[in-house]
Write a protein that binds this DNA or RNA. Sequence first.
DNA 1: TGCATTCGTTACGCCTGCGTTCCATTTTCC
DNA 2: GGAAAATGGAACGCAGGCGTAACGAATGCA
Lengths: 114, 114
Amino acid sequence: MPIELTASQALGLWHGVSLDQVRHDDRDLTLRQMAILLHIYLVPPPHTVRGLAAELNVTKPVITRALDTMGEMGLVDRVRDASDRRNVLIKRTVGGALYLEKLGDRVREQGRKL
Amino acid sequence: MPIELTASQALGLWHGVSLDQVRHDDRDLTLRQMAILLHIYLVPPPHTVRGLAAELNVTKPVITRALDTMGEMGLVDRVRDASDRRNVLIKRTVGGALYLEKLGDRVREQGRKL
DNA sequence: TGCATTCGTTACGCCTGCGTTCCATTTTCC
DNA sequence: GGAAAATGGAACGCAGGCGTAACGAATGCA
């Protein structure tokens, strides 16, 4: 179900959410970290470091470090793949789900304000 | 004219735009820089360093540095206020307008894909 | 005229993310 | 078994943003 936005609405929405996020500054994620987090939660598993790097068009260490940071924040979790122990599977957490739930609310709220 | 989004649509939209932005990585702005840029272009002038700092709930040097960076990118411009020479007025540029136009297109495109 | 106030900027030390390169572990293939 | 490939991570130096604390310039006010 497509959403049709005017140019003004599109930028207004992005503005409102960014502003809200900056003002309340809970934990600010890099745009890259945000993209990684959303990818993990919105795209069906499994997710590996290599796969994410390819998907986002960034280098592997970028993913590793993002997982370090977001792991400490409790937003994601890492588990060794039992069937191929070279792989690391990225898993979702309750904290991450809550974080994205709040983000979604922010987007919806700003959408309503347009 | 409010836009009603489901939770899934809201996150999907944010995901798509973030992903697109990361992948094409022209120039990546901090969330703060993004919020400042959008504020300058969407809220009626005049804009001062002090005003933006208060509006975004950040310190003054944050604004100064963001203007330095985005100024070098050609996204904003600074002009001394003639009537009160302590003030600096932040001006829009063609480059900034083009940048935000692209961002708006990205948001609209992702909205259509929902 | 003096002096306090306001405004934007700069200086400092710190922290974090970045790309490149290299490495240990594990798997695959012969 | 042993060589080669694949995977995630660590080490290195670099660049840039951060908060705090100062500063010079401009203004207002007694």
